[in-house]
Amino acid sequence: MELTRYVTIGQYIPRESPVHRLDPRSKIAAVTVLTVAVFVVRDFSGYGLLTLFLLGVVLASQIPLGYLLRGLRPVLFLLLMTLVLNVFFSGIQGGTVLFQLGPVVATREAVLRAVFIGYRLVALVLVTSLLTFTTSPVQLTDGIERILRPFRRLGVPAHELAMMMTIALRFIPTLLEETEKIMKAQMARGAEFEHGNILRRARALVPVLVPLFVSAFRRADELALAMEARCYRGGEHRTRMKELRLAPRDAVALALTIAASFVFTIPYPTWQALLR
């Protein structure tokens, strides 16, 4: 039983790659630009180019592609549902009929749209996983804090939000580990989590959830105490050991991403005209 094998969210894979070295702020900005591009692109030429671009980034990041694709597993069900619903219940009238199952008809247009929507979902998951795989939680929240800083005037508690995020991300693996340990301890006393109907399975979780909550509260207490003992008083007057500093490579990476995103959105007919 290895829960960390199935939950890759918030996981960071330390490597010495150019993508890892980028400033978190430029990575967050690049992800935002790409997200917009994913929604603006409308034809295969654009998606093809976007795929090539993402593959390039994956190669540069030294994250194995297979591992990245594994992050899709939790959204697989959502993906299938999206495909099925969009193919058969698209509401598109007319169009070329591809095949028919009783009363439901799949048209060429509906299939195309389903594929586009499915691709968008995949691309979004990949882009955000790339961000978390290549950016340590501390860097990520530092980046978010710096991006939110100008909004402090409007009452946005930038530092507090970032600190909460850091702590939450930091504790995902800890709580997973704890869950695994408690489940094992109860299994050693004859607990079974994979047998019986839903009701029995839910009941079997009580001996896991109670100790998990107890330990989460204990950890929260200890952490709060440790922070107070070191005079933590929120963001005022706090300095940091590692200041974020934008480097020339950040400008290059961001410029490349923006330029590429514009290219992706060029419609196919324009490509045809350009290449003639």
């Binding site: 301890a185 050693a188 100790p211």
Partner: peptide
């Protein structure tokens, strides 16, 4: 049933 395993800090499993 034959091999009893007591984890480290077993008191954390009480519920």
């Amino acid at each position: 049933q034959q091999v009893g395993l007591v984890f480290q800090y077993p008191e954390h499993q009480l519920f």
